[in-house]
Amino acid sequence: MRRIDVETSIFALIWALRESGEESENDILFRVLSEFKSIKDSEAQSLRAESEETQLSSESTQQPTGSFESLEVKSSKKIQGQTFERERPMGKIRWVDDVFEAIRKLGGRATLHSIYREVENIRRDAGRSVPKTLDATIRRTLEDHSSDSANYRGTDLFANTGRGEWEIRQDRRA
């Protein structure tokens, strides 16, 4: 497997294109790119089978390491002179990713109300669900990822800077 870096918004678009039976980014992109290039199904399947055979033969000659190479998503953008950067393994987009992206888009610091609206926009634009409990879910996510909260669960991403105001922790800014 190869590794590519994509922005969070592109990653969300890839998963928004997912069809039933597709379980990885590779499956989704293979179908989309095959359709885009108008490759005949038999040629596309032949290419895919050839790729899988090559991968299997190279894996059989390597010592197993117990870990898998994964595609990472890297989001980096300058806002008001600061760069916010976050890397995470590819896979299901988590609430914390949407909340982090929302605060980043809002300049690194925002009120709860602004965060609610931005997360809602991010999820709608990506074709993901927006539950009725959106506000509570966002509050829980902020508290779970802030050492300022009694609900803190281990990854210290956010700081509570006042009543109803949150920011990305300084050490999470690149």
Rank of each mutant, 00 (worst) to 15 (best):
D27S: 12
F100P: 03
F158H: 02
T61M: 02
M1G: 10
L71T: 12
F158R: 00
D41I: 13
A174T: 03
I115N: 09
E43H: 06
E165L: 01
E85Q: 08
K78F: 05
G107L: 14
E72S: 05
D98G: 07
T54Q: 10
R86V: 11
L71Q: 07
Q62K: 09
R2W: 08
R163C: 00
Q82G: 00
R48V: 03
E52P: 00
I168G: 00
L13R: 12
K105P: 02
T155R: 02
R117K: 12
L134V: 03
E53Y: 09
I168Q: 00
E53N: 08
T133S: 14
V6G: 06
E165A: 01
I10T: 15
R88E: 06
I4N: 11
D148A: 03
E87H: 10
S75V: 06
L29W: 02
G154C: 02
T54H: 06
S147K: 09
T137F: 05
K92R: 08
A44P: 03
R3K: 08
V130D: 04
K74R: 06
G107D: 10
Q80Y: 02
G127Y: 12
S42P: 01
F68H: 07
S38W: 08
F36G: 07
R117A: 15
D125Q: 13
S20W: 12
R18A: 14
D98P: 05
K78R: 02
R31P: 10
R48A: 11
I93A: 08
Q62F: 03
I115H: 06
L29H: 10
E143F: 03
R109Q: 15
S24M: 13
V130Q: 04
D98L: 03
I28Y: 09
